[in-house]
Design a protein around this nucleic acid. Structure first.
Lengths: 234, 234
DNA sequence: AGGCGCAAAATAATCGATTAAATTGGACTT
DNA sequence: AAGTCCAATTTAATCGATTATTTTGCGCCT
């Protein structure tokens, strides 16, 4: 029953239904289409994605290893919850991991890496100037920018972990975007980060990135605080 | 067909076959019972672990997210390979991650944490003195010791990532143990680490741990390839 | 009202069988 | 001898059905 094509009608790429399920579930979770804490019933997912239980369960198992989905024995899967405490811990973790990743990226990065940072930043900035608010394209460019910053870090494990944390934060960023982001000068923050990185100023780059992540977390926390103290209900 | 009992006859714990498969596969991979690079044929695993394809595939999907198993579309699973390059990169990554984890653990750790470090170290040392070489019990105690060191780090993501890296290194340690470890004073290294940690000397603790990991990597590399490779930079 | 027990319904976990894809082993060609 | 094509075989991926567990709903008791 595996599809022959590598591109599905919905736009997801993947040689197997397992891959497709993983990508679509991940995308839906990151974009908040499926809300944090929401129960993921296999029957419903079968209906929704038009495939059997096996590829879905396999994809959910992988997502659970990445902490996007919580797997509970004999009780199925649910989208990982987001609480203020979680966001604080996530922000700390991102600061610490990016501290290392950016330091080693700056240490190991050559001219080509430097150029790719400038390029990624340019694309992000250009989009920012032509478009109004954050949209799907911005999401992609923003992700690529942050990845470019640490792309020269020689540990693929660390780079991947960094991206996993980015994913987790992306979910709440999505929800926060609906609230306020007017007061924030994201473009300015990115500008300063690039300058520090190009100047190979590790201390400053780390400091700016930490601030960047903390502001992101603060906005996210503020956006969920009202309905805070989320009951373990679904 | 799910088992009711939470303890299987083989000693693995897990309410579901999925869990059991995960634990048994992980254990077999860490202990080198299944060699790096070895193909993991579902049919063979079904026979070996006495269960169907579903729980096995789900477990393999999770293990692949943890990099213990490599998943290739339409081509199944194999145990992650170990190469000198891999080991060098792994050692670097461990140094960097433990740098953060130990720093934050020391920063956040209270008296109770300090005591748990001393206790874990005592158990490891006692075992070292009563037993001859590394054995399965030592593996457990050694793991618990290293986990105790960073247990006060407030990020569970980071602690888990640290353990994932420990797992990856464990595989090669196992193989290396068969070669030589006579020249190495592991107990002495642990002793110094504990002293630095208790003294809350972050710089020294980091330095000692880095050295600890590098020596481990060097031995592992030597055991799979006669000529050694340059140390990971710090 | 609120708690308890149990049957019914829903859901999760797993199996056995089926389909698709990759691999193997020649026969044939150059 | 090396390369290529194709059929046979093996293996991976997936589905539909089955079994086990959890959850729900409803009397019944206090």
């Amino acid at each position: 029953m595996a599809r022959t094509s590598s591109r599905q009608e919905d736009g997801s790429v993947g040689a197997t239904l397992n891959m497709s399920a993983f990508e679509r579930l991940r995308a839906d979770i990151l974009r908040g289409v499926i809300a944090p804490g929401e129960k993921l019933r296999i029957e419903a997912l079968k209906e929704r994605y038009g495939m059997g239980a096996s590829p879905l369960r396999e994809a959910l198992n992988r997502l659970s290893a990445l902490h996007l989905v919580e797997k509970i024995d004999q009780r199925g899967f649910r989208v990982a919850l987001i609480s203020p405490e979680t966001l604080v811990e996530l922000a700390m973790t991102r600061c610490w991991v990016s501290e290392i990743a950016i330091r080693e990226s700056i240490r190991a990065g050559n001219a080509a890496w430097e150029e790719s940072v400038v390029l990624a930043h340019h694309r992000l900035k250009r989009h920012h100037e032509t478009s109004t608010g954050p949209d799907r394209e911005w999401e992609v460019l923003h992700r690529q920018f942050h990845f470019a910053l640490i792309a020269a870090c020689p540990s693929h494990w660390l780079r991947e972990f960094h991206e996993t944390l980015f994913d987790l934060a992306d979910r709440s960023r999505h929800m926060a975007v609906l609230h306020d982001h007017a007061a924030r000068d994201v473009a300015g923050e990115h500008q300063l980060i690039v300058e520090a990185v190009i100047a190979r100023d590790v201390t400053r780059a780390v400091s700016l990135l930490n601030q960047h992540f903390r502001i992101t977390a603060d906005i996210a926390i503020a956006s969920i605080e009202p309905q805070s103290v989320p009951d373990p209900v679904d």
